[in-house]
């Protein structure tokens, strides 16, 4: 079955080459579908991919970004456009782990190599649609657990913590929350409250301030991304509790650099977003060249970042 798929893919690219215009078209075309480019993380990722394209020079990159994190509609359209254009591979960071399965199935049926990165497609949805697709990406849950463990190590058993979640319904938000919860369980911490601040600095500032009022005994705060962590740090500064209460974040965006340095932020997690798309493209190109498709979960590196 896999062989047939490959043959079809080859046939499609042959047809394209036959009907195509220039010699340049012989280079495989990779369609990169990302989430919101208004998010620094994906912006970095795109730049990483562009550098990668220039460095390798043996493929053509077509990248598409979305308006916002939950713009499923545009992602589906992007995938369908790539199918129409007959690209060789689609590399996608799905905006929704379920809704994106059917369009990707259509892409595979059209003989296109599909690589799923950043956020894993839902296993159940994949099963229902009869799709087998590996996931190339970081372990959000594992990463959050690393950050959580750092906090637990600093605070010790029985310390009281709260979580700031990402957008309800987003898979990475859920995974990070689960990772935090894993660390809380293993580290013997006490979870007082867990709320969303929709990935946003200002909202995180407000929510954290109000949580501090409701629970004056908070010792540690886990934020599911660094934008929210910044808001938390500012809330602590306003409350005069900077340094007293420990904060961890996720993503390692440049803006938290100074905070890590002076200890206002205990730790964050780097998932090397810049390389993530590039790694996935490498995988895709190998499959296009004839290598077997990856299986299961190809984990990409994550690393805990602290001030020291």
């Amino acid at each position: 079955m896999k062989f047939t798929k490959f043959v079809t893919a080859a046939a499609v690219s042959l047809m394209m080459a036959a009907g195509g215009a220039s010699a340049d078209e012989k280079k495989p075309v990779v369609g990169l579908v990302m989430k919101s480019l208004a998010n620094e993380f994906f912006k970095d990722m795109l730049e990483g991919a562009k550098e990668h394209e220039a460095k390798r020079g043996d493929y053509v990159l077509k990248a598409v970004g979305m308006k916002n994190e939950s713009d499923i509609e545009s992602q589906i359209n992007a995938v369908e456009n790539f199918i129409t254009q007959g690209v060789d591979a689609i590399v996608i960071a799905p905006a929704d782990s379920r809704a994106m399965v059917p369009p990707l199935k259509r892409a595979m049926e059209a003989g296109i190599t599909v690589i799923n990165f950043d956020v894993s497609l839902d296993p159940k949805a994949k099963e229902q649609n009869g799709v087998e697709l590996a996931f190339v990406g970081p372990d959000n849950r594992g990463g959050a657990k690393l950050a959580g463990e750092a906090l637990a190590a600093k605070l010790g058993k029985g310390a009281k913590v709260v979580i700031l979640e990402g957008n309800p319904g987003a898979d990475n938000a859920l995974q990070r929350k689960l990772g935090f919860e894993d660390a809380i369980k293993e580290g013997g911490l006490e979870l007082l409250d867990s709320r969303t601040a929709h990935w946003e600095t200002e909202e995180a500032n407000t929510v954290a301030t109000n949580m501090l009022t409701a629970h004056p005994d908070i010792q540690g705060i886990m934020a599911a991304n660094d934008s929210m962590a910044i808001g938390v740090v500012k809330a602590l500064e306003s409350a005069g509790k900077a340094g007293e209460i420990q904060v961890v974040g996720f993503d390692n965006i440049p803006a938290v650099g100074p905070m890590l340095k002076d200890g206002r932020l205990l730790a964050t997690v780097d998932q090397f977003g810049r390389d993530m798309a590039a790694n996935a493209i490498d995988q895709a190109l190998e499959v296009v060249k004839g290598a077997p498709e990856p299986q299961g979960w190809v984990k990409t590196p994550i690393e805990l970042v602290t001030g020291n």
């Binding site: 208004a38 946003e200 600095t201 200002e202 500032n205 934008s227 910044i230 500012k234």
Partner: peptide
Amino acid sequence: IYMARLNIASPIAGS
């Protein structure tokens, strides 16, 4: 006020 409070200027602020 946003900048003074949060000490950042984010292009995705205020949505």
